[in-house]
């Protein structure tokens, strides 16, 4: 821990030496900047329906001899694709990050409790994790969101879709964190310094926070990259099924769903651009995750 500055410069050097990781980091930074600064950069406000004109619908991107206002063309409602994509990427990133934070919060608490206290509590919590995992997140999310949508009505759903999606993905994936943290806690608990801390009478909470939690940091960092990418994919898949973000406040997935109707009529850009952006986003996160995994090389709990 006290070698932090040293570690820091090593990480940076390793990042720059690995060409794939360096490019991924650069792409990811650019995407984050563009997406979170979308209200500043975007030429139009894609959430304001009064700004689109149906006469502008399905204008191809520049190079197709089209309108100079719409660099990447427009969709079926005459909405500027570039603006919609920047805002959409922002929504996808927000969902990915917050859903992962929620997963981590639940998972760390459950994992620490299971690993440190062990016994019946441990087997009970891990059994729940098993059952939870055997229903895949996508399935759980589809059912819950469908029920939610049907019971509150579409209008209300559009209002609260973001919160609902974050909650569903966050709650459905906690076992990933819980298992990793539990494995770390079990390994650390056996070590002598934890015994020593217990012998001098430190309360369990202090031992967990000061001695065990810091050791779970690197595996958590590695799975977090994967989890953010997966959460973004899950949201996009839900959106494609019509259960994600509504088309009035579209995520990248909603934009793709919206564009799929036009693919047979040749308006490829309505699907292709958001799709490319989505893949670039997920790929850069995953490649950085791979690099991080090689760098930190934690023994991840598998199954």
């Amino acid at each position: 821990m006290n070698a932090a500055p040293h570690l820091h410069s090593n990480v940076l050097r390793s990042l720059l030496r690995d060409r794939t990781a360096a490019v991924s980091a650069a792409v990811l930074c650019a995407l984050l900047l563009a997406a979170l600064g979308a209200p500043l950069f975007a030429p139009f406000d894609p959430w304001d329906q009064t700004q689109f004109d149906i006469m502008d619908a399905e204008i191809p991107p520049l190079g197709g001899g089209a309108d100079a206002r719409f660099v990447l063309g427009t969709d079926g409602m005459g909405r500027d694709m570039l603006s919609a994509m920047l805002y959409g990427a922002g929504i996808s990133i927000v969902i990915g990050v917050f859903a992962t934070l929620l997963q981590a919060a639940i998972g760390v608490v459950v994992g620490l409790a299971a690993g440190y206290f062990g016994g019946r509590l441990d087997s009970f919590l891990m059994r729940i994790a098993d059952i939870q995992l055997s229903f895949t997140t996508l399935m759980v999310a589809i059912v819950i969101l469908a029920v939610f949508q049907a019971s509150v009505g579409l209008r209300f759903y559009e209002e609260y879709a973001l919160v609902a999606i974050v909650l569903v993905i966050g709650i459905a994936e906690w076992p990933q964190y819980a298992r990793t943290v539990r494995a770390c806690a079990l390994a650390e608990k056996k070590k002598e310094y934890v015994d020593a801390a217990r012998v001098i009478g430190l309360p369990p909470f202090t031992i967990l926070r000061r001695h065990i939690l810091p050791n779970t940091f690197s595996p958590l960092l590695v799975i977090s990259t994967v989890q953010v990418a997966n959460a973004i994919i899950t949201e996009a898949s839900l959106a494609f099924l019509g259960l994600g973000m509504p088309v009035t406040k579209p995520s990248l997935g909603s934009l793709i769903r919206n564009g799929f109707e036009f693919i047979f009529s040749g308006a490829w850009w309505i699907t292709a651009f958001p799709a490319l952006l989505l893949v670039a986003l997920i790929l850069s996160i995953n490649l950085l995750g791979d690099w991080l995994r090689d760098l930190l090389n934690p023994r991840l709990y598998r199954r």
């Binding site: 990418a229 996009a236 494609f240 997935g253 793709i256 693919i263 699907t271 989505l278 997920i282 790929l283």
Partner: peptide, 22 residues
Amino acid sequence: SAVGISVPVFLTAIFLIYLFSV
């Protein structure tokens, strides 16, 4: 395989349809 993991399944499907069908 890194690309494969990063492309959502419905996008692969759309891409295949666009290329091989359309």
